[in-house]
Design a protein around this nucleic acid. Structure first.
Lengths: 146, 146
DNA sequence: GTACACCTTGTAGTGGCTACAAGGTCAATC
DNA sequence: GATTGACCTTGTAGCCACTACAAGGTGTAC
């Protein structure tokens, strides 16, 4: 895709492979107003992108990899696009709130893991189902309670 | 809800409060064939449950709390309901496979947490957005890479 | 002109529910 | 037997962040 000014225009597929975000996801982001609607040659024609769009999509991909929700990504993009002289207090707030959420999730998953491990460790896997400690734990609650 | 034989029949709401599973979730489990269709007084009439259903739902709730998927729960229930003399090899297999998945999730979340923490720790939260290390990490990838 | 890759929009599906809406049932009271 | 009111019924839509199609249109090279 090349226009008349020597600038290379990217198709959605090219943007996808350069940004590491699938074309379907890019269209989804447009629908969800995470990214602005792309320029077009006309209605029903192909979307046209440039290098700035590659960077924007990479930004989104990295934020998503760090677990930020699309709502948070929208906020981070707005801050990134806003006044460069404003202090990044809000960026910090969003990131720290997200970290707190991740920590909570880790704690819950860790507790679950410990309980699951405990339940499993009580069963050798060869006794009859009727005596299986895993099933009895599920049937009657934690063995330590009984 | 009382029938003519002295046995108490439970409504879905009573089953919900006794099992700790919401009535909507119980109906959902029935639709998804996690539990068999409940007895009824007739078409369109109320579902009728008993004590065995309370235990079954508690079993499901505990398995869900340990993070088992509904597919896994279906398997565990089938094993629990099957021949009591069969060895619990399959139960063990399912549980250990699930534990491995949980461990993987924990590892990924832990790595994400570390990266997020690293990114955040580089930013005091008061510098201009233009210099914010969180945003620059999102824009240009991990700082350690550059 | 024709082949072919890529794009377009729209819709449905994922998991495990929750949240409604519009109407029906049940038990108790009058 | 009528009414009240709590609870139930089915059906549908929504959540999150996409992915996976289907049917057809566009862009480009030969």
């Amino acid at each position: 895709m090349v226009n008349g000014q020597g600038d290379t225009t990217l198709s959605i597929g090219e943007l996808a492979s350069r940004s590491g975000v699938s074309a379907e996801a890019i269209r989804y982001y447009e629908r969800e107003h995470v990214v602005p609607a792309a320029a077009r040659g006309g209605p029903g024609r192909y979307r046209q992108y440039d290098e700035a769009d590659v960077e924007r999509l990479q930004f989104i991909r990295r934020a998503r990899e760090l677990g930020f929700s699309l709502d948070e990504v929208r906020e981070l993009l707005a801050l990134n696009d806003g006044s460069p002289s404003r202090p990044c207090t809000d960026v910090n707030r969003i990131a720290r709130a997200h970290l707190a959420q991740v920590d909570e999730k880790l704690a819950r998953l860790g507790a679950l893991r410990a309980e699951l491990d405990r339940v499993i460790s009580e069963c050798a896997g060869v006794v009859p189902v009727a005596d299986c400690r895993i099933l009895s734990a599920l049937s009657g609650g934690p063995a330590s309670d009984r």
